[in-house]
Design a protein around this nucleic acid. Sequence first.
RNA 1: GCCGGGGUAGGGUAGUGGUCAUCCUGCGGGACUGUGGAUCCCGCGAGCCGGGUUCAAAUCCCGGCCCCGGCCCCA
Length: 401
Amino acid sequence: MAISRVKGTRDFSPEDMKKRRYVEGVMRSVFESYGYEEILTPTFEYLELFLKKSGEEVLKHAYIFKDKSGKDLILRPEVTTPVIRFYVSNLRNRPHPLRLYYITNCFRYEEPQAGRYREFWQAGVEIIGTNSPEAMAELIIMADDVLKRLNIKHYEIRIGNVEVLKNLLSDVDDRIRSKILRHIDKGEIEKLKEYDINYEKILSIITFSGGRNELEEIAGKDMLLLMDYLDDAGVRYKVDFSIVRGLDYYSGIVFEIHNNKLGAQKQICGGGVYSLGELFGFDIKACGFAFGLDRVILSAERENVLPEVSERRFMLFLFDKKYYKKALEILRIVRKYYKCEMEIMRKKIKKSLEYANSKGIDFFIIVGEEIEKGYITIKDLKRNVQEEVPIENFEEYIKNL
RNA sequence: GCCGGGGUAGGGUAGUGGUCAUCCUGCGGGACUGUGGAUCCCGCGAGCCGGGUUCAAAUCCCGGCCCCGGCCCCA
């Protein structure tokens, strides 16, 4: 029995990686076009970093271990907290706002399921220095932009504010409050009656469907402003105060994006205003979001919107190793413009052509005795024609293919 | 952690309590010694793991592991 993969992890084939790199590439180019810069933090951190603010749920499912010196370490279950650590220790004297992004793997020990893995990828952004409605608008517009550029259609943006419920429950014990919030998140409205709280008020908020005035009263001006910005941007969204983010550090306006083409794990993006600064003794205004990269890829697959990217590919076949040096020269020229591989299995030309054909290679370059007269044979496998090209015209010839 | 459905070569599959475990595809080679996709031939490659029942288990039973989906939770 061969050694198998660890549960909840995946191997990615060349085909998988093409899809992943494509989706990542779209995210990267959108993020960068908004002026965000890429960073990366370590795969593991001291456990301490995540103890205070990530919340029980995240820690319960974390990979926690000791290193050889007995220090408690954790594989990052999310990236926002490490980014803030990085910020506090090294980036604080940069001009604000800081716009940062990352695309990297995270780890949680949970039961694997459709769209849920123990090693998964997050593509996230953070704005440090402000949590203004303008900043939140930028985030949501940008997230929407990414999905639009990927041609994903079946998504829904929901906007809420965790402060509203937290304020309403401010005099409730911490533990009870998180229980109540969990009921709200799950839609277990009936259970709320069991608690000593303003049931009617909470119910009216989580089932909110009123107009601007009421909304302003409940959520404040910022929420209204954000909604105006999103309207101007043509971003469609729903207001939903029952959104309770799983991470405890969220502290204001939050949003989630779901794709209803997905199974049980529908959420493809989540974010909002958070307060992590107090962890380091500062008041840092910040907000951000993260895409679940795997789920976005899954969405793109389900909606069948991944483009077929075709690129010209070459292969060089060498008849005699005495022309190896010539072949290298030719390869150097071809590789300035195209992908070109070389035959290295000592195959006969027939087998080599079979290989090239089954790999979908477009042009087959043959280096044989004609090289002595200064000619290179180029065979167009798709059109089944071949030509002998003088070596001095070779570069010009392939450039114009 | 819980619930449901699964697990036979790299991928897809067939079958039976008892010959050498099918077939397709794939991969390597040959027929064809410098020209592909066809054909033919040869070769490579498998019953998740452990235990039980049995003269005999890939097949039946139990446990575990893993995969798929759902709950919980999250991305």
